[in-house]
Design a protein around this nucleic acid. Sequence first.
DNA 1: AACTATTATCGTAATATTGCGATACTAAAA
DNA 2: TTTTAGTATCGCAATATTACGATAATAGTT
Lengths: 110, 110
Amino acid sequence: MGLTKTEIFTDGQNRLAALFKALGHPARIAILQYIINQKACICNDLVDELGLAQATISQHLKELKRIGIIQGTIEGKSVCYCIDEKLWKQIQAEFNVFFNQEVKVTGCCP
Amino acid sequence: MGLTKTEIFTDGQNRLAALFKALGHPARIAILQYIINQKACICNDLVDELGLAQATISQHLKELKRIGIIQGTIEGKSVCYCIDEKLWKQIQAEFNVFFNQEVKVTGCCP
DNA sequence: AACTATTATCGTAATATTGCGATACTAAAA
DNA sequence: TTTTAGTATCGCAATATTACGATAATAGTT
């Protein structure tokens, strides 16, 4: 126990849940917002900006990279992180497909 | 360690992350989809439908109730769960506010 | 080549989550 | 009132996540 039974769910359900999960941490929300708000792409000003250790930030960046919503390109001795616009929009679209399902309310909900 | 440092993030960041997190499990996605697809609201056909124990389903339902996206009304000896349409749309809207931020791409992303 | 700055990874401790059996609780049914 | 069905909660075991210091890896600088 303690491990999710992914095999009993559909790929779609697992995929959607993985996307939601990746965004389910305030540090990762903050990282995305910070990257978005800088005109230039950002590397590890994040360590100064958020109050988390370098190792922790790096770990969160890895999570975000894993779902593809950001990408990092080597820029000299630092790494420039930025939003992958295409993925950003695609993920939003996937969420909206989910949320745009028609919700049929019947009786029991006042 | 092992506990999220919520105090260093804004309320908005914590709120958004909490919403994402609540949806970040395939069982909870499946539960929402199942409730939506039934014309009538549902109680614990979920236990038969998904391959999870009753205690586990009940736990997931609690998580979903916590963010308000579903509500349960007592119906005799069973409980009828349904989507809270208002919250459903509100949460979608909160996600879209986040995703509709303008992503400024600059240089480093090819 | 030695040094420095930046980032990734490893190992570890603390906490959270997932899943389940057992049990308590509740309301209808007999 | 006893029984029964449905649900919630407790307690536990297994695994995952979060956070961090230490260290490795990389690429520029001197």
